[in-house]
C-alpha cells in the first residue's frame, strides 16, 4: 500500500509538471487538420416536377471516418553547430522542438545517440522552455514516451550529455510516434483516437535530427550544411520524375570571425528544373531575378548574397527543384 501511494504521488508530480509545460506551448495557427475520429457524412437530395406537381427525394447517407494520421517533425532551435567551449556541464543542453503534425493526440518515443560518447546522451522535457537544463524543473525522459501531445502541439526538449564532449562531433536524435511508424500508409487498425484507425503519414511518423557540435575555434570560419527532402507526386519520398526536392542550405559562421560579403552559389543538379519562386531566406520568399533582394537564379545556379554574418548566426536558405 505504501509503495503504491508513493508511485501515485510521483505520477501526480510528473503529470502536474507536464501540464504546466504543455500549457506554456504556443498554439500553432496553421493547425486545421480534421481531428481523428471525426465522421464526415453526406446526403444528397433532388427535386423535380412531374405533370405540374413537384416531387423530391433524398439519397442514402454516406459516412466516412477520418483516421488518425501519424506525423512528426523535429526542429533544431539553436545554431547549426553548437559550440561547447566554456559550457557548464551541469546545465548545458541543446534545445530542440518536437511537433505533433498529425491529427490526433499522440505520444512520442525519443532516443539519442552519439558514437563518440561512452554514455549515450539523454533527452529531457524543457518544462520552463529556457533552453537550459534545470534538474529541479526539467524532466528527463528515461525511456518513457512524451506525454500525449494534441494535434499541432509543440514540445520543447533538451539534448543532454553525461559529460561534455571534448572534441567536435555529432549526436543524432530520433523520435517516433508511439502508436507506430514506418512506411507511409502503414495501417494500425483501431489504434487511432476515438476508435478510429491510425495510418502512418508522409513523415513516416519518425524524425531524425542531427546535432553537430564543436570545440574551440579551429577549422573553417564558415560551415555550409546542405540537406534535402524529396516529395514525390504520390506523397512518398521516392526520387522519381515529377518529385519536388527541397534543398536546405545552412551557413554558420564558426570561428569568431565576422564574414563580410558572404554569398552562397549553388548549381542545381543535372536532370532537375528549378521551381520558380521557391527561394526563401529565413522562411521569407525572395524573387528569382537579379534585383534589390538578396537572391537570384541565373539559369544554372542560385545565388544568395548574405552580406555580413557575425558569429554565431546561422542563415538558412531553401529552394526547390523538380526531378525531370
Amino acid at each position: 500500500m505504501v509503495a503504491s501511494k508513493t508511485v501515485s504521488s510521483k505520477q501526480e508530480t510528473w503529470l502536474g509538471a507536464l501540464a504546466a509545460a504543455l500549457l506554456s506551448l504556443p498554439v500553432p495557427h496553421a493547425q486545421a487538420a480534421t481531428l481523428a475520429g471525426t465522421a464526415v457524412s453526406n446526403t444528397a437530395s433532388a427535386s423535380y416536377q412531374m405533370e405540374g406537381a413537384s416531387g423530391s427525394t433524398t439519397s442514402n447517407t454516406v459516412a466516412t471516418e477520418v483516421d488518425e494520421i501519424l506525423d512528426i517533425t523535429l526542429r533544431n532551435t539553436g545554431t547549426e553547430t553548437v559550440r561547447l567551449d566554456g559550457r557548464d556541464a551541469a546545465t548545458f543542453a541543446i534545445p530542440f522542438v518536437l511537433t505533433n503534425t498529425g491529427n490526433g493526440d499522440e505520444a512520442f518515443q525519443l532516443e539519442a545517440a552519439d558514437p563518440s560518447q561512452e554514455v549515450a546522451p539523454t533527452v529531457a522535457i524543457d518544462v520552463d522552455g529556457n533552453g537550459a537544463y534545470d534538474p529541479a524543473v526539467d524532466i528527463t525522459l528515461s525511456g518513457q514516451p512524451t506525454p500525449l501531445l494534441a494535434p499541432g502541439a509543440q514540445l520543447n526538449l533538451l539534448l543532454r550529455f553525461a559529460r561534455l564532449p571534448t572534441g567536435a562531433g555529432g549526436a543524432t536524435i530520433t523520435a517516433r510516434a508511439e502508436t507506430g511508424s514506418g512506411a507511409p500508409g502503414t495501417f494500425f487498425a483501431g489504434k487511432g483516437d476515438r476508435g478510429s484507425d491510425a495510418v502512418v503519414g508522409r513523415t513516416r511518423a519518425e524524425a531524425t535530427l542531427p546535432i553537430a557540435y564543436g570545440v574551440g575555434s579551429g577549422g573553417s570560419v564558415a560551415q555550409l550544411i546542405k540537406s534535402q527532402t524529396v516529395r514525390a507526386p504520390d506523397g512518398t519520398a521516392a526520387p522519381v520524375s515529377g518529385a519536388v526536392v527541397t534543398y536546405r542550405l545552412a551557413l554558420t559562421a564558426g570561428g569568431g570571425t565576422v564574414l563580410s560579403d558572404a554569398e552562397i552559389v549553388d548549381p542545381i543538379p543535372v536532370g532537375t528544373a528549378f521551381v520558380p519562386g521557391s527561394i526563401q531566406i529565413e522562411d521569407i520568399a525572395v524573387s528569382d531575378v537579379a534585383d534589390a533582394d538578396a537572391a537570384f537564379f541565373d539559369g544554372a545556379a542560385i545565388h544568395i548574397a548574405l552580406g555580413e554574418i557575425s558569429q554565431p548566426t546561422t542563415r538558412v536558405v531553401t529552394f526547390q527543384v523538380t526531378i525531370l
Binding site: 480534421t34 471525426t38 464526415v40 457524412s41 453526406n42 446526403t43 444528397a44 437530395s45 433532388a46 427535386s47 423535380y48 416536377q49 412531374m50 405533370e51 413537384s54 416531387g55 439519397s59 477520418v66
Partner: peptide, 24 residues
C-alpha cells in the same frame, strides 16, 4: 451522386443538390 428516373413518365425541372460537409 447518381439519379435514376424509375417512373413510367418523364420528369422535368430536376435539381440535384449536395451539401459540402464540414471538414471537406
Amino acid at each position: 451522386t447518381v439519379y435514376k428516373n424509375h417512373l413510367a413518365q418523364p420528369v422535368s425541372g430536376m435539381v440535384v443538390s449536395n451539401p459540402v460537409p464540414a471538414n471537406i
